[in-house]
Simulated assay, not measured.
Amino acid sequence: MSWCWEYNPDEAGVVAGAPLAFVAQIEKKADEIVRAAAALYLDGTTYRGPGERMKTADVDDGIFWYMIIPRDERVYILRVQAL
């Protein structure tokens, strides 16, 4: 398995109606979060510690909520809010 990010439950449900420039900012920031998670959890599939809590990330035009799930090697973007 390899680290990546995805929208949860799906892209249409999370970013529907958001401006394309805002979505691009979210996806760029999500790429950065994935790189950091991959460095922290070198082999996430064997991680047995406590799960992480939901976090937020600010971008120029808003904010988004996400969770890092080491065992899945995924960053799930759960909700976005454009200003």
Results as ranks from 00 to 15, higher is better:
residue 4 C to F: 07
residue 5 W to V: 08
residue 5 W to A: 01
residue 5 W to P: 06
residue 6 E to Q: 13
residue 6 E to K: 11
residue 7 Y to W: 08
residue 8 N to E: 06
residue 8 N to I: 02
residue 8 N to P: 04
residue 9 P to W: 02
residue 9 P to Q: 08
residue 9 P to Y: 01
residue 10 D to I: 12
residue 11 E to G: 07
residue 11 E to M: 05
residue 12 A to N: 09
residue 12 A to D: 07
residue 13 G to C: 06
residue 13 G to T: 11
residue 14 V to R: 00
residue 14 V to D: 05
residue 15 V to N: 02
residue 15 V to E: 07
residue 16 A to K: 15
residue 17 G to P: 01
residue 17 G to R: 01
residue 17 G to Q: 13
residue 19 P to Y: 08
residue 19 P to V: 09
residue 20 L to Q: 14
residue 21 A to R: 11
residue 21 A to Y: 07
residue 21 A to N: 12
residue 22 F to W: 05
residue 23 V to F: 09
residue 27 E to H: 06
residue 27 E to A: 01
residue 28 K to S: 14
residue 28 K to H: 15
residue 29 K to Q: 10
residue 29 K to A: 05
residue 30 A to F: 00
residue 30 A to Q: 06
residue 32 E to Y: 07
residue 32 E to W: 04
residue 35 R to Y: 05
residue 36 A to P: 00
residue 37 A to C: 03
residue 38 A to D: 10
residue 39 A to Q: 13
residue 41 Y to L: 08
residue 41 Y to I: 14
residue 42 L to V: 12
residue 43 D to N: 15
residue 43 D to Q: 13
residue 43 D to I: 11
residue 43 D to A: 12
residue 43 D to V: 14
residue 43 D to H: 12
residue 44 G to M: 05
residue 46 T to Q: 14
residue 46 T to F: 11
residue 46 T to R: 11
residue 48 R to F: 12
residue 48 R to W: 05
residue 49 G to F: 09
residue 51 G to Y: 06
residue 51 G to L: 04
residue 51 G to T: 07
residue 52 E to L: 07
residue 52 E to M: 01
residue 53 R to L: 14
